[in-house]
């Protein structure tokens, strides 16, 4: 156990020394790894923020039913009664055409236009919350309402949220794909750096093997170096994501304000930060491992 600890601490120390002994090279390596990792990390940060934004504007799937302008109060009552009895309807709210007109007049931007109209252009309407708010069930319900007499138009109000959700899903998939591709890139970077290190230390490796070094003893410093490169590159990526967050926070906040939203861009949360650092260290290790497997085989 004592020997094992001594070997590991020696290997870690050697890896640190390798990083420190050529600071410019190390800095460039870390920048290459950092930028590679920062791209999917920024994507993940934006996704998390977008998800937070959609959560703060509840989609509350609803269906709006607009009555025909010719529909009288009896027809409206019939629809209200049918909605009350319908098992697929959780609740409904009636909005009379007068109420809608008064609401619209409350909007200063629309008041002048509304006042210029000779008659009330708005129909009576119902806002319906469905018992099953899945997209398919809502579509089916809307289709059924469209067939009812005196119903002019039926609209799924949550459509935009669903579209946004679909878009977020697409972006999420793209971020994962980008992460996988650039993760492969990190493995390739680590592979090349470790390969160069092995070739530089070829004489030392060969002598060590002749003096009784095990494969583990020879591999260890390079594996530590790979992990250290990945982890440090991950830290650079984390800092880059933080910088991008700070840079975008003000303009995005102003944009959100224009849509009456209170929004402040947040950097990676602790879970995503830990994931970034853990993955970067693991990929650095993997690149080193593959390189060692390939290179050391040639020394035997």
């Amino acid at each position: 156990m004592r020997i094992w600890i001594a070997h590991h601490s020696d290997a870690a120390w050697h890896a640190l020394r390798k990083l420190a002994v050529a600071p410019i090279n190390s800095l460039l390596y870390l920048l290459a790894i950092g930028v590679t990792l920062a791209l999917p990390a920024v994507g993940q940060m934006l996704l998390t923020n977008a998800a937070r934004l959609t959560e703060s504007t509840p989609p509350a799937p609803q269906i709006s039913i607009f009555m025909a302008s010719r529909a009288d109060s009896k027809a409206t009552k019939d629809v209200s009664e049918r909605l009350r009895k319908h098992v697929g309807v959780k609740s409904h709210q009636f909005l009379s055409r007068e109420e809608t007109l008064s609401r619209m007049k409350g909007n200063p931007d629309l008041r002048d236009v509304i006042d210029a109209l000779s008659s009330n252009p708005f129909p009576d309407a119902f806002v319906v919350a469905a018992a099953d708010d899945s997209h398919l069930a809502m579509e089916k319900l809307a289709d059924e309402f469209r067939k009812w007499p005196n119903v002019e138009h039926v609209q799924l109000d949550s459509l935009w949220v669903r579209r946004l959700d679909a878009l977020l899903n697409l972006v999420r998939t793209s971020v994962i794909l980008l992460g996988v591709l650039l993760g492969g890139g990190l493995v390739a970077i680590s592979f090349s750096i470790i390969r160069m290190q092995i070739l530089t230390h070829r004489a030392e490796i060969e002598v060590s093997q002749l003096l009784g070094a095990t494969d583990g003893y020879i591999r260890r410093p390079f594996l530590y170096y790979g992990v250290l490169l990945g982890l440090s590159g991950g830290c650079v990526a984390w800092l880059l994501v933080g910088a991008v967050t700070l840079w975008l926070r003000t303009p995005l906040g102003e944009l959100a304000h224009l849509y009456d939203l209170v929004f402040s861009l947040q950097t990676l949360n602790p879970r995503d930060s830990a994931l970034l650092l853990g993955l970067s260290a693991s990929l650095g290790w993997l690149g080193a491992m593959v390189s060692l497997q390939q290179q050391l085989g040639q020394f035997r």
Binding site: R2, I3, W4, A6, H7, V207, S208, L211, G212, A213
Partner: peptide, 9 residues
């Protein structure tokens, strides 16, 4: 070097 390999204190 040989002592490091053998894990001597």
């Amino acid at each position: 070097l040989p002592l490091s390999i053998a894990g001597f204190p």
